[in-house]
């Protein structure tokens, strides 16, 4: 049986990687203090992660962890202010909306276009139109179990597409 001996110290995240990560997060959220907090939190989590799993590319993983934390933060905030303001005039200056957003949307549209037509239709009906698995099944002549399988495959396909087609500005490195 092949056995590898690996002398592993802490993941190779030094001061320069940390600085890159903070700069990346600052570009994404525009808030220097928040960027620092999330970078710190992400590094702590990476260390814990690497204790429990073998990690080949700690930098890439760190970027994913940090991105996830940032989205978590935004979703929490969005829930807090949801319902308080539904304003048809967006107060934010348009420059703040990163060009990355447009790229991400494009990427997602291409990923959706690449899905088989039936799988895409099932996802549209579920996520966009809020139909139940039973309703979708009746409309498309599928069993509920088959509908669920289509949703599972569609989601996995979308994530895999995002992994394969990275967009500029999506990672700090």
């Amino acid at each position: 049986m092949p056995v590898t001996l690996a002398a592993r110290t802490e993941p190779p995240i030094g001061a320069s990687e940390r600085a890159h990560l903070v700069a990346f997060l600052r570009r994404r959220c525009g808030n220097p203090a928040l960027a620092e907090d999330i970078a710190q939190d992400a590094i702590v989590r990476l260390v814990d992660f690497a204790r429990r799993e073998r990690v080949d590319h700690p930098q890439a993983l760190l970027a994913r962890i940090a991105t996830n934390l940032l989205i978590n933060h935004h979703r929490r905030e969005a829930r807090l202010i949801a319902g308080l303001a539904d304003d048809p005039v967006d107060e934010r200056p348009c420059q703040e909306r990163a060009a990355v957003d447009a790229d991400r949307l494009d990427q997602l549209r291409q990923a959706i276009d690449a899905l088989p037509p039936l799988r895409r239709e099932v996802l549209i009906r579920r996520r966009l139109e809020g139909q139940s698995y039973r309703e979708i099944g009746a409309a498309l002549n599928l069993s509920s179990a088959a509908v669920e399988k289509h949703v599972v495959r569609a989601l996995a396909d979308l994530r895999a597409y995002q992994e394969r087609h990275k967009i500029e500005g999506d990672t700090p490195w």
Partner: peptide
């Protein structure tokens, strides 16, 4: 010490 069959994340 890691076994070679132990796959990474």
């Amino acid at each position: 010490i890691q076994l070679g069959t132990f796959r990474s994340y």
